[in-house]
Amino acid sequence: MAVRNFGQAIADGLILEMERDPDVYIVGEDVATFPAFGVTRACYERFGATRVRDTPVSETAIMGHAVGAAAAGLRPVAEIMFMDFLGIILDELANQAAKMHYMFGGTMKVPLVVRTVSGAGIGAAAQHSQSLEAWVTHTPGLKMIAPSTPADAKGLIAAAVRDDNPVVFMEHKLLYATEGEVPDGEYVLPIGKADIKRAGSDVTIVSWSSMVQKSLAAADLLAADGVAAEVLDLRTLVPLDKDAILESLGRTHRLVIVHEAVKTSGFGAEVAAIVADEGFDLLDAPIKRVTAPDTPVPFSPVLEAAFVPDAAKIRAAVLSLG
C-alpha cells in the first residue's frame, strides 16, 4: 500500500495495463505533453508518443478513430478533456461504439475506454463542469464507471481497460487531489460491484464519484444526530449492483440518493425507480434525492457552491425522513 492521489492512482493503473498489453494506447488532446489534469504525463514519460498520442482539438476524431481502432484490435484509452464535450462525441460513442457489438450480432468487440473529467467546484462554469453520467447510462452497450477513491480508481481503470466493451470512466476534477491508500502493483476491481464505504443501520445513502465523499461527511454529521447512515458507493452505474442497493435497503429501509448531476432524469431517478419496483416492500420512508438543481452550472462561486450538493443538504434530506 502506498498513499497516492486520485490522478496518480489512475496513471499507475494505466501504466500497468500498458505494460501488460502493448495494444493499449492513450489518445486525446494534450495527453502527452501538457495534460489538462496531469494524469497521463507519467504514461507519456514511460511509453512515449506512439502509445500516448496527442491529437488536434478534434473530439469527433478522437472518439471516432478509437471506435475503428478498437474494432481493428487495439485498446484505446481516449481522453475527453471535459465531460461536457460528450455532446461532441455522442454519435461516435452512443451510435457507433455502443451499438456495434449488438448490431453486428456479437461478432465485433469494441474495447475502448473514454476517460473524461466531470464536475463543478472550480469555477469552470456551465460548459466545463457538468456531470453527464445519465447521458451514458441511457445508452445500452456502454458501461459507466464513476470511482470516488484513489484505490477504486486504480482498480477500476485497469478493469475498464481489460473490458471488451466501450467504457466511460468519469473522473471528478475535485477528486484528483484527494489521497488514499492504494494497493501496490496489479490491482483490478470487478466492474459492477458497489462498495459500502461506511456501514450503518438507519438509512442508506447511495452515491458515486465525488458525492461519496460528501455523503461520508454527511454521515459524520448524522452520527452526531444519532443516525447511523450507510454510505453505498455504486462505483459502477452500468452495470449496476442492484443487489447491493436492495440488500442495504433491506437493513435500513430508508434511501437517500445523492448525485451532483441535475435532478431531472438523473441516474438517481433510475435507482429510485428500481427500488420502487424491486424494493417497494423494503421502504419505510419515501426515497429522497439530493442533487443539483435543474439549471446549468453557474460561474459565481457563491452560486456554484449552492448548486453542488453538500453534507448539510444530505443530512437535511436524511433527517426529513423522520
Binding site: H253, F280, D281, L282, L283, D284, A285, S320, L321, G322
Partner: peptide
C-alpha cells in the same frame, strides 16, 4: 410506508387503526 404495509399484512395488523409517527 410500503414496508409498514407489508409487515402489517404479514402480522395481521390493520393499519387503518394506527396513527403513524412518521412525517
Amino acid at each position: 410506508t410500503p414496508a409498514a404495509r407489508k409487515l402489517a399484512a404479514e402480522v395481521g395488523v390493520d393499519i387503518t387503526h394506527l396513527s403513524g409517527t412518521g412525517p
